[in-house]
Structure formats: C-alpha cells, structure tokens
Amino acid sequence: MGLELLRVIFPRWNFFDRVRYQLVLEVKQFGTKEWLPISFNAARTTGGLFINPEVTRLHAEMSLLENFAQDVQKLVDSNGQVESARVQALTSFKMVRSLVVNRLMVASEADVQFRISAKAGHESVVLYVSDTVEVSR
C-alpha cells in the first residue's frame, strides 16, 4: 500500500482500455425490499473546462467503488465467502459507507444496507451486500 500512495509518480497510462462492467451502488432502507440506485449524474456547468468540482468528485467516488470492489474480491475465501468483519476493517469500506451516509443524510432517516453490483449489459453480479448501516441524524 505504501507505494500505492505514490502511484501518481509511477504512471501506467492505460485509459479506457478495458470494457469493464459498470459498478452500481444501491441502498435499501431497513424493513423494505427495494434496492434503489445511488445516482452518479452531473449537470454541465459554465466554466467546467476550467473547474469541474462535482464531476471530479464523482470520478473520485467511482474510483473508490472500484477500489472497494477489488479489495472485497481479495478477501473472498475458497468457499466464495467474505468475512464481514474483515470487510468492515477496510479503509475503502469505511469510505464507501461514508459516501452512502453522506448521500442519504438529506433523503432518508432510516438505517440502510448498501450493495455493490457489477453490471455488464443485461447481466448483473452482486459483489457485496453490507450489514445495516446507521445513518447519522
């Protein structure tokens, strides 16, 4: 991880190189059954060519989801299971949890679960489903 923090000076220059699945972050309120996607939409802004904070943040958040998905995959054991406590100890988990809580602070007051799926065309694979997350009030 130490060198990962300095990866900016070890560029790989691979852009749009793989047609990856699209990661989808969804939440479900406690006591309900419906999973609702968290939006990653942005509006165009005047001067966006110069500063584009909302979109740059969305790109950073999407990278975070990819990092988290990779971290979770590394924890999958030979039975295809992931130990919840180990996932929750991940820095990327804490950050995704903060992302979810931050997005829901206004929209919801109920505790939630979140899940991350990889979607490619009409196929979708659930990579992780969280325990209940308390939304701060």
């Binding site: 991880m1 130490g2 923090l5 943040r57 958040e61 820095t91 804490k94 903060s98 809580v101 931050n102």
Partner: peptide, 27 residues
Amino acid sequence: ELLKMVHQGAVLKIWSRENLEDELKAN
C-alpha cells in the same frame, strides 16, 4: 477545484481523517 470540492462537504466526509488516519499511519 479542490477547494470547491472541500467546501461542498462530501470530500471531507469520505476522505476524512477518521477514515484514513490508520491507513496513512501504517503506510
């Protein structure tokens, strides 16, 4: 742009000290 991102709030919550301090200390 970074200043505007910080002022928008989400960055401070996700890339917070609470979330990152242990990892940064370890690395």
